[in-house]
């Protein structure tokens, strides 16, 4: 009697959907979709005329030179890339109001110059460190001013912070050292 009953029963397909959903969710969680991400940069407008001679106070300029051996010269001193971000942050914010650092974040200018033989990896790392110096300063300013994280602020508030600490990054024409043959 029992045997007969089992034969007649259909396999319950109702739970099939649940199983499929489970699989779907599993794949959704585990798969990392290759995304296109990168460091966003705005290039300056091209102009044929030589740039106007600007009188800049040297205390406001943070010059970073990267040579063909991928070594850094920051304001005349050799520096390790690890120290670049914190050094740049101190320069821009100038918390102790030192004579040889930026008058205010508004006046600070970062200048990068590289050789033609500089490795792209090093260049991007330097650019990234300087950008992250600004990002961290913005985040700190957002915390102090509004008591919130930068990404929780409204666009106008973010703009306000960015106007207070503007990102000015100028790139000089590369010098012709170490060009690959």
């Amino acid at each position: 009697m029992a045997k007969k009953n089992r034969m007649a029963n259909e396999i319950n397909a109702g739970s099939m959907a649940d199983i499929a959903f489970l699989l779907l969710i599993f794949f959704l969680v585990t798969t990392t979709i290759a995304e296109d991400k990168g460091v966003l940069v705005k290039l300056p407008q091209w102009s044929e005329e030589p740039p106007p001679e600007l009188k800049l106070n040297t205390r406001n300029v943070y010059s970073v030179l990267v040579n063909a051996q991928n070594q850094l010269l920051v304001r005349g001193d050799v520096m390790d890339i690890k120290d670049l971000k914190n050094n740049a942050k101190i320069f821009i914010a100038n918390p102790q109001k030192l004579e040889n650092m930026a008058e205010s974040p508004k006046n600070a200018i970062i200048s990068i110059k590289n050789d033609r033989g500089t490795k792209y990896q090093t260049y991007l790392e330097v650019y990234n460190e300087l950008k992250s110096a600004y990002n961290e300063l913005w985040e700190e300013a957002a915390m102090v001013k509004f008591g919130k994280n930068l990404d929780q602020l409204s666009n106008a508030q973010q703009q306000e912070i960015r106007n207070e600490i503007p990102l000015v990054l100028s790139e000089a024409e590369p010098t012709k050292f170490g060009e690959e043959k």
Partner: peptide, 28 residues
């Protein structure tokens, strides 16, 4: 690529600026 030197990248940047394409994204 990691390994490329800035010479060719610099030339590309100049060319992009001349063409008026100023928004760029270094993929990383």
């Amino acid at each position: 690529d990691n390994d490329v030197t800035m010479g060719i990248v610099g030339d590309l940047k100049t060319s992009l600026r001349k063409a008026g394409q100023l928004k760029i994204n270094y993929s990383a």
